[in-house]
């Protein structure tokens, strides 16, 4: 296992990143100057209570949103100044997303939901291989409505990894699942991280999940309040909540 102290390639870094939402006359400071890094191949948990700004941070890292001030770098791409076109390209080729509510296309089968991404990716996996990786080789031709929540989330993970992204960004991936199913999903994420070396960032408000991460970044009130290295991450099946 790679120790956090060894020199690693920096995938993301932000400097004094702020994000202010203006809702009419009210200003909401979601991020108040965030400095953080993500390194290649690591499994990081971004922990925070609701309203701490963690989703905003993830959205900005994923190119779905832009900061109000400060810098965001993906390797040598300056995301804070990137055009719409560059951001779309960035999402298309470098980032895999997993969402709390899966966001599968209901009219497409599991295989087709993966294919919709591999069709536009550069060197993707075969959709059925991606689905085999998440243990769904038996459910290739099922539509989302025919799958359980855990299965749907695994399809979403297969969809996210099939393009062989550089980073996997997961927003509360277990948020809509019971703990048993949630743990299965985490196991899949863990395996992907190990086997493919995909940098993985998981957002959660569930502190237990931080035990499986190599690094935990805690956000409170729009700022990084704590960064903890975890020398001995536990296996997901050891987690309880």
């Amino acid at each position: 296992m790679v120790t956090p102290s060894s020199p690693r390639e920096r995938v993301f870094h932000t400097r004094a990143l702020t994000r202010v939402f203006r809702l009419g006359e009210v200003e909401i400071h979601a991020l108040r100057g965030v400095d953080m890094e993500l390194y290649a191949g690591e499994f990081v948990v971004l922990l925070g209570a609701s309203g701490s700004g963690k989703s905003t941070l993830l959205n900005i890292l994923g190119g779905l949103d832009s900061g109000t001030e400060g810098e965001v770098w993906y390797k040598d791409i300056d995301l804070s100044r990137a055009s719409e076109r560059v951001l779309t390209d960035f999402r298309r080729h470098h980032v895999g997303f997993v969402f709390q509510f899966y966001n599968l296309i209901p009219s497409l089968t599991a295989r087709e939901n993966v294919a919709i991404v591999t069709d536009i990716a550069r060197e993707p996996m075969d959709p059925s291989d991606a689905l085999a990786l998440v243990g769904l080789e038996q459910r290739l031709d099922h539509f989302p409505a025919q799958l359980s929540g855990g299965e749907q989330q695994r399809v979403a993970i297969a969809r996210a990894i099939a393009k062989k992204p550089d980073v996997l960004l997961c927003d509360e991936p277990t948020g809509a699942l019971d703990s048993k199913t949630g743990i299965k999903v985490l196991e899949v994420l863990r395996r992907i991280n190990r086997e493919l070396g995909t940098t993985t960032a998981v957002i959660t408000h569930n502190a237990v999940i931080a035990d499986m991460a190599e690094r935990m970044i805690r956000l409170s009130d729009g700022r990084v309040s704590e960064v903890t290295n975890n020398a001995h991450p536990v296996d997901p099946d050891q987690l309880h909540w």
Binding site: T88, R91, R92, V95, F97, N103, I105, I116, V117, I120
Partner: peptide
């Protein structure tokens, strides 16, 4: 659905 596809890089 369309927003999801945009997120996925469409």
């Amino acid at each position: 659905e369309l927003a999801t596809l945009r997120v996925l890089g469409f």
